[in-house]
Design a protein around this nucleic acid. Structure first.
Length: 297
DNA sequence: GGCCAGGCTAGCA
DNA sequence: TGCTAGCATGGC
């Protein structure tokens, strides 16, 4: 069995990342145990099962059932590093947050947690749009139906692992096909449009990655179905922009209310004021505040 | 059973 | 530029 060891700069805590990855029992795109996570990754045309284990400042990557070439391992390492934001130095974030009334207790409690995302642009946009204006729980239900109908699967040791549907597969659908899965008519249209743009390469992560956050944001906002919240969410979760700030997010508002123990949720203006002291780390602050909503899992 | 969900668009002033 | 109805249905 081939494997590799990825070094990660401190502070880093694999267990904290695992807790986040375990937050929904309905998740279909990875499978966690108390000390591992498994994910089916598309590398070229292959579907490779990848398992991650924590190991003192490292992540051990093992391949339970596959032989993996050097080139494939490089892609997998890139994918894992992007997924778990491993190339980030969190020291400045911790220094910034040490005196912050909202962040200090969260940084203390979850030291080493990384901003876990979705390296695939189609997945990030689709998940964000599914999640608009519905409960997370319902969003997971819809995502599961979508993945189980249009994704690809491999069964290993009696367990089914799934990949997110490819844009190519979705581009040719009619909205009615997604309506069956309880997407709203509008969301069905948005997602099919996005699939067509990605397939036609008028929208591509690699092309956008070289641009500034401002330009990426503008490009995302030009997509039907993508407003400010979605653009900032995708900047955070797909483009690893630690300063992206989905300021109107209800989960963020709930978390702030909860941390402060106030009777009401903060206004947008109040959230904006908190954000002013997080300069450059608004995305991480938001992510840690989201984390506070999941209890100790 | 009513209100709220990890919002956005189109239409209007 | 700013405001609002409508979307669409589950969860609590």
């Amino acid at each position: 069995m081939t494997e590799m060891l990825l070094a990660v700069q401190q502070p880093f805590d694999f267990q904290e990342c695992l807790v986040f990855l375990s937050r929904s029992k309905q998740e279909v795109l990875h499978v966690t145990t108390p000390d591992t996570v498994r994910k089916l990754m598309r590398i070229g045309e292959r579907l490779i099962l990848v398992e991650l284990q924590g190991e003192q400042g490292h992540i051990r990557v093992v391949f339970p059932v596959d032989d993996v070439s050097e080139m494939e391992m490089e892609s997998i390492e890139r994918g894992v590093r992007d997924w778990l934001d491993l190339d980030r130095d969190l020291t400045p974030f911790e220094a910034m947050g040490a005196e912050d009334e909202l962040l200090a207790p969260l940084i203390e409690a979850h030291r080493g947690l990384r901003m876990i995302g979705f390296p695939d642009l189609f997945e990030a946009l689709t998940w964000a749009i599914i999640g608009q204006q519905i409960t997370l729980s319902f969003a997971y239900t819809i995502k599961r139906r979508f993945v189980e109908r249009y994704g690809e699967q491999r069964v290993v040791e009696g367990r089914t692992y799934w990949t997110f549907p490819r844009a190519e597969r979705i581009a040719s659908l009619e909205p009615e096909a997604l309506r069956e899965l309880q997407f709203s008519r509008r969301k069905a249209e948005y997602i099919i449009d996005i699939a067509q743009e990605i397939t036609g390469e008028t929208l591509s992560k690699s092309a956008l990655q070289s641009q500034s956050s401002t330009d990426i944001r503008q490009r995302l906002l030009a997509i039907r179905g993508v407003g400010e919240w979605t653009a900032d969410y995708v900047l955070m979760k797909c483009f690893q922009d630690a300063s992206a700030f989905p300021i109107a997010d209800v989960g963020l508002h709930q978390a702030i209310q909860h941390q402060l123990g106030t009777a009401k949720k903060p206004t947008i203006e109040e959230v904006r004021r908190y954000g002013e002291s997080w300069q450059g780390w608004e995305g991480y602050a938001t992510f840690y505040l989201w984390r506070s909503l999941y209890g100790n899992v």
